[in-house]
Design a protein around this nucleic acid. Structure first.
Lengths: 216, 216, 216, 216
DNA sequence: AATGAATGAGGTTTCATTCAT
DNA sequence: CATGAATGAAACCTCATTCAT
């Protein structure tokens, strides 16, 4: 359907102003989903909140499905970038692991909206017309892979005992997400600081070599 | 919309056949949400799958919101009942804790549909007209409380070290939910058996008294 | 997409009342197209003219495209049935041919709306999603075939000279349609009675055997 | 909308380059209508096909309605000019009549796009705001008049029998249009060469004086 | 002259809900 | 109890048109 004139399969270089609009719309949409819920986040409502007309969204996004995909991409990419920067500050794998966990929670605390929206978007299946992409299915793969590599070098350096890489990576991410979920569903039901400290202890305790004496 | 004035009496005792219909509708709705997603689970679609007419649903439920609430109640109650029965078989707190974790995963494996639906429903906020119930917010409180009591007796009996009750309870539930989430989003991305074993180890390891020699 | 439960590929036997509604909607739609033009014949306008709500049309027809197809079918079937009945009264092929032409014009005169709508619908291409049916392409085939059979028996019986069947059939239909078109575009630009008589003469004269003395 | 007060002077003589742009837009629009149908021929699509921006069309045409009018004028004028040139080569009315018919078909064959677009535009009524012009209604008047004059001189010169002028003119045009219609709706359903020859025979046969012996 | 971002009206469609049968 | 035709609000989307650059 889309005629691609340029060889590079890039449909068009987006203008600076266009990119700004797209970001604005995505951010407003996230805020709207977080505030009123996805079911109430109609294009009209998003446009109203952004102070623009409905048509602008349709102009910049190829339908609501495309907007949602960009929202999801944003919700996954932003914390990932933040976490990666934090992890890169550390040299030793165990410190990186701890940084990974703590950075996740740090980002959470300053971006609760993002996670409220994310939980509302979890499990959403794209419309049939979209061709059944596996976006959601692949959402966690990068995290698992990234964690697995940290664990791997930790094992090589003897800081981490010989855990199964992928499973342990899944587990670490799972603990983070599970805490986040409870915090998102009810901000007051959970002492986030205590949970962070406890999760970090549990994880580092779990991967620490048996003969290690120094508890964190 | 919901009359909460009379505690139980006035609203007519539900017929047996009526209860059966309600259960049938709820189960079909769960299957529909799991299969096609909540956004495609219109009353018409649910009725079609159940082999009944749309009107029946409206007759038995006071609007779609009421149906969704019953679905959520069902999705939370059924695993809770199953888990409680498993826990009750055990006498000692540590064994109960282990039973809690394992029963959760056992129920998951045989009821994947329920969890696919649950993840799709997570974070959903009820329509404004419904009066802003805190259903989701309270969803995890029973689990946390139940776990906290197990931990508490474990501490009293010396099987479990002196962990913060609520935070640790949150943590245990979090690990379970986080693994479940990844498994729901992509059945093949996770070795569920390995994850179960690893989660159980991590949790029991985390709560075990420091001088305890017996690793699980 | 459509699940066909019953073996006979019939999706459901339409109720009498449902058929009545469908006919009402189709007739109203034709009148609307004839009066205001297809571009103004929105579902809202059709519903307004029919005194029903927009939703009723969507309820009975699977989208506007399906309504248009039924309209086209109706616009082609009704005159065809009428003409066939007139032709069947005659025994001899030449008389049948004359009846064919005259019945076409007789139906036209009493159903100008139908033809105004038809001309507006001519050349319309279905939406891409519809799968590119060749409805329009096949619209004239039945007429050509029907005429060709009349010509064929006329040739066998010596009433009609040895004309090429399909081409002559196309020609006869073409003359009828061409006159109709001018009459539809401007009712007053054409003396329809004179045109009917002249067309009939031209056609019968064209197919009459060379030695035939009797002019019509 | 259209100011018809000043006959020609006031509205600024169109630049050469401006005229070229208008022609380009009209031709692209015709191609677009022929290819995708009028309903898909949005200004955006036409502009895309022409390699220009939407604004250019609005700049050169006073709205889409004005563009359509120019398209229709073009679709009627071009074949008329072509046919007139062919007819002018002949001296005798009967030969002119034959040239008229044959030139029409010759132009058709080399400009199928034009006729596909024309059939899609037939019967279209202008938007209410435009003031209800009778463009379509008058579309055939020039042809009828032109043909009538040929017939008239043929009658005067004894080459053509005393047929009713306007009605016969209508009839001739009708046969041409009717054949064209079937060919437009399905290119393969009709042997155009055979149809041309048969139409020419029918028409010349119809207008030939009774005592004329020489059939074409 | 030309661009393309923005508008806003209007179209089709979906869907929870109602109600006569 | 059940049906399914009907409603009407609201959603997404398209598109002609405008206008600052």
């Amino acid at each position: 359907m889309r005629s691609v004139i340029q060889p590079d399969s890039q449909k068009r270089r987006p203008t600076f102003i266009e990119e700004a609009r797209r970001r604005q719309i995505v951010q407003t949409a996230i805020r709207t989903i977080a505030t009123r819920g996805f079911s109430q986040a109609s294009l009209a409502e998003i446009a109203r909140k952004a102070g623009i007309s409905k048509g602008v969204i349709s102009y910049h996004f190829d339908g609501k499905e495309a907007l949602v995909e960009e929202i999801l991409a944003s919700l996954l990419r932003e914390p990932a970038d933040f976490v990666k920067a934090r992890v890169d500050r550390e040299n030793r794998p165990l410190a990186q692991l701890r940084a990974y966990v703590e950075a996740n929670f740090e980002f959470m605390r300053t971006h609760r909206d993002h996670y409220v929206a994310l939980v509302d978007l979890w499990g959403r299946r794209p419309d049939a017309a979209s061709g059944g992409n596996r976006f959601d299915a692949d959402a966690y793969e990068p995290s698992r892979h990234y964690l697995a590599r940290i664990l791997e070098s930790g094992i090589e350096q003897g800081e981490i005992r010989d855990v199964p890489l992928r499973t342990t990576a899944s587990l670490i991410q799972a603990a983070i997400d599970g805490v986040m979920l409870q915090w998102v569903l009810d901000e007051d039901a959970l002492d986030l600081d205590a949970a962070i400290s406890e999760v970090t202890d549990m994880i580092t305790g779990h991967v620490r070599p048996f003969n290690s004496e120094a508890a964190s």
